[in-house]
Amino acid sequence: MTHQLIKAHLNLHAVLQNLEDLVEHDPQTAALAEDWRISVQFTVKKGPRAFISFADGACQVGPGKCRRPSVILYFKSPEHLNRMMDGTANPIPLKGMTRLPFLAKEFPRATDRLEHFLKPTDELLADPDYLALNTRFSLSTAVFAVRELCLLDEVGQLNAAHIPKGTVLFKVLPDGPAMHLVFQRGDIEVVKGEAKQPSAVMLFKNQQVANDLLNGKGDAFTAIAAEDVMIRGRIPMIEAINPILDRIPLYLS
């Protein structure tokens, strides 16, 4: 598995995934997408597929094929997709020529907004609303990326092989966001929200603590000892995930 291919998986399945939460939690994007009714299929030659669908003021992002997409965007290679995500290339539209104005003008307003929330500065993070959304997106990106890296990255695969069946919950206290990873034999599922009977939990004391750790501003051992982060249960599951989390910046810097 090449670096570009893994990066393409992360871009489609971890980064773009945030559009769902962006529409749900950012009032500006919610207003923007309120009347959107369109589905966009991303197809990468020798690479991953994913779709984004807007309807009824909500967004859905998923892997694989979308049924009757309004637009199909084709990429010649994983690298082509990654360059598009970096803003240095354009996709090849295969279907939905009449919707190109939407893709050229409307859709980028949402992706620009997402980029705004994914590229924090200390000044931006001083705003509690920004901090909350950046934390949500950072957590979501990390958890979705763990799934991809467990399946595709060599080190991720080696670590994932030692993760037993069970559920690992990540939650920012007191009210979320929360996400969990369900490990089953040969498959890993990412679920947004609480888990009923997690095998292991990693709880962040508050938004600030979660944000600092997810943005690499602190070390987990100190945070745990200081009770800023609480871990319980089958801790080897969390221990095995940690090195995988460390791999994310190798692909998404």
């Binding site: 070390d219 987990a220 051992f221 100190t222 745990i224 000892a225 200081a226 609480m230 319980r232 801790i235």
Partner: peptide, 14 residues
């Protein structure tokens, strides 16, 4: 880590 390695308080739960 404050107290690194195997003596790290992080291993003791809660």
């Amino acid at each position: 880590c404050g107290i690194p390695g195997h003596m790290s308080p992080a291993a003791n739960v809660p």
